[in-house]
């Protein structure tokens, strides 16, 4: 699905990623955990194509394409989806119009016909249920006056409509209460399939009780310092990041 090799990146001259290696196969769910400032969100944003970051070394191959050479819209059309940590509010653009335009751009790329209003409505009604959102959300401007939880649910809802091949969740759980967290996790779980992969970036282990990953990676200071199965998340829950960071510091020294 995606193959990240020796990825180095900096923003305004400061190196944030210092050689990330990550291989995600179809159907796998990888959790990327780590303390604040470890580079988790940078990794997610670089994969989505945000331009503030400068990739200085390494490569990313997505379904055989050189991802780093692709425009953000082309990444999305090929099946990459980023659920934003901070979804932006866009006054004057309705959720429905936004999603329909996006979906039809993706369908056109795949050589499929544009969806008409009826078909689209049927699809979105179905997907709204997945995240327990009311139909009235469709007519509202994108994220405008949405609560924090609503914004995150809206991200998962968009993912459910656009049906990407790789979903990247950037701290989707941060700041959510337990009810909202369950709704979000449940939405993601329903989208899991043997063909679809996820990279779940999170600061908290709690999310991984609801979205059980196949692999867990610990990112610190721009590098993956430990990888393991779901049990690694539980280890971190009990022992915190410090022990791992210290051990790694000694090993490096």
């Amino acid at each position: 699905m995606i193959s990240i090799k020796n990825l180095h990146a900096s923003v305004e001259g400061t190196e944030i990623l210092k050689g990330i290696n990550l291989e995600v196969k179809p159907g796998e769910v990888h959790a990327v955990m780590g303390p604040n400032g470890s580079g988790k969100s940078t990794l997610a944003n670089i994969l989505a194509g945000r331009e503030e970051y400068e990739v200085t070394e390494g490569s990313v191959s997505f379904l055989g394409n050189d991802l780093l050479e692709m425009a953000p819209e082309d990444r999305a059309r090929e099946g990459l989806f980023l659920a934003f940590q901070y979804p932006v509010e866009i006054p004057g653009v309705s959720n429905a119009n936004f999603l329909k335009t996006a979906l039809n751009a993706i369908r056109e790329h795949r050589g499929e016909d544009a969806m008409d209003a009826m078909e689209f409505l049927k699809l979105v009604k179905d997907r709204l249920q997945l995240v327990e959102m009311d139909q009235k959300f469709l007519q509202r401007s994108v994220n405008v006056s949405f609560s924090g939880g609503e914004k995150k649910r809206n991200e998962i809802f968009q993912m459910a409509v656009l049906e990407p091949k790789l979903g990247i969740l950037d701290e989707t759980d941060s700041g959510l209460d337990i009810d909202a967290l369950k709704i979000v996790a449940n939405g993601v779980n329903k989208l899991r399939s043997p063909e679809r992969s996820f990279i779940v970036v999170t600061h908290y282990q709690r999310l991984l009780d609801y979205i059980v990953p196949d692999f867990v990676h610990v990112l610190a200071k721009g590098k993956i310092i430990k990888s393991g199965g779901a049990e690694l998340a539980h280890y971190l829950e009990e022992n915190g990041y410090d022990e791992l960071l210290n051990a790694n510091g000694k090993a490096a020294a």
Binding site: A48, G49, R50, E51, A71, P72, E73, R75, A76, R77, F81, L82, F84, P87, V88, I90, V93, F98, L99, T101, A102, L103, A105, I106, H109, V142, Q158, L162
Partner: peptide
Amino acid sequence: HLFYLRSRGIGE
């Protein structure tokens, strides 16, 4: 705003 729309597949 532009990035958000593009990240969903909408051309620039």
